[in-house]
Design a binder for these strands. Structure first.
Lengths: 193, 193
DNA sequence: CCCTTTCGAGAACGATCGGTCAAGAATCGT
DNA sequence: ACGATTCTTGACCGATCGTTCTCGAAAGGG
């Protein structure tokens, strides 16, 4: 057959993800990627196709890593409300302690690429739909279990938390002032009392 | 003396703002700007210096146009809470009806440029500080006027609304689904009851 | 062994990037 | 009307962009 690959495509994709995540799409050049991944230019193209495809694959990978973790956390058996609180607080904490100013890769993509890149927009919407519906079913379950008053609207509450989470990530990317984000999260969570 | 300018620098800056606003910094080339502004390349450089300076001036102009409007609205005499509600709802409505997918120019800058552009980051933080403190003083006034229960924390509430506004703009840039944004806004405003 | 495939390093591709320059055209004060 | 000055126009710059190609070396399977 042939010579075996000397680099791990999985690790290379992870490396590319980290670079795109920090700098965004346009500000990251193929030369940057070649340097950072430590693999040859030609291998990069042979393995991932193009810069755009590489970005989409990195975005896909990010979604595969992040989305299920949140969904599982929110759908774990037992009380649902504490799980929701934990997710929101973790978003605030991660945004506040984000010294690399990375924010959320999906959110960054939504702002930089989605308006003029339908493939990216589709992937963003997929992650967002998963997040919103995970929050919705958790809150629905909370209401059914008596953790949440009957008159609350789980759909609307989930949407409000979802939008807040996007805001946390955006603010954290520029100015991860801990007090600001923690206050925002705790006030929003007061709606669940 | 000398020949007078044939173009209106103010209108040109406004045009540049619109282009940067829609496409972002990196995805907008000087060639795009020359086409869109209708003025010569050299005139552009003579008037605005460089692409980066032009972007910062556009950002400055956006801030000068947007920030005071909100601050005035929130500091108008009379009941404070309705003004806060109106501002939040207008953000949701503008984000939901944003068919050009522009979002907020400051928010877009925060995501694309702020992490590696200190000048842009400073301007973002200035707008954000104005917005947050305008919300804070409005809510403080609301509490003093008996519109808000004594035990509420105006600072924390303002921070929560501030973060939510950022989220509204981000979500609106990719998917201005009206229901999502309106629900988010109205649920957040329920915290003021 | 040989053949094939993939590797790394780098040259080279055309296109486009942000930015500059050299004219000619137009407008002022005199 | 004239000269001084500053505009517009469009060609032009080197650098960098994403992408392809060449090349010799290295590592499998027959």
């Amino acid at each position: 057959m042939a010579r075996t690959k000397e680099f791990d495509p999985d690790a290379a994709l992870q490396s590319a993800l980290e670079l795109f995540w920090r700098r965004g799409y346009e500000a990251t050049s193929m030369a940057d990627l070649v340097d950072h991944l430590g693999i040859a230019r030609a291998s990069l193209y042979a393995t991932f196709g193009s810069k755009h495809e590489l970005y989409l694959k990195a975005l896909e990978r990010y979604g595969e890593q992040s989305d299920p973790r949140i969904a599982e956390e929110l759908s774990a058996p037992g009380p649902a409300l504490p799980a929701v609180r934990a997710v929101v607080r973790r978003f605030a904490e991660e945004s506040a302690c984000d010294e690399l100013r990375r924010g959320c890769f999906v959110t960054n993509t939504a702002v930089e690429l989605a308006p003029h890149d339908t493939a990216a927009a589709r992937r963003v919407e997929k992650s967002w739909h998963e997040l919103e519906s995970a929050l919705t079913s958790a809150l629905t379950r909370a209401r059914a279990q008596g953790e949440l008053p009957e008159e609350r609207d789980p759909v609307a509450l989930a949407r409000m938390l979802f939008v807040l989470l996007q805001g946390l990530r955006v603010v954290g990317r520029t100015n991860p002032e801990p007090g600001r984000l923690r206050d925002a999260a705790s006030q929003a969570l007061a709606l669940l009392d």
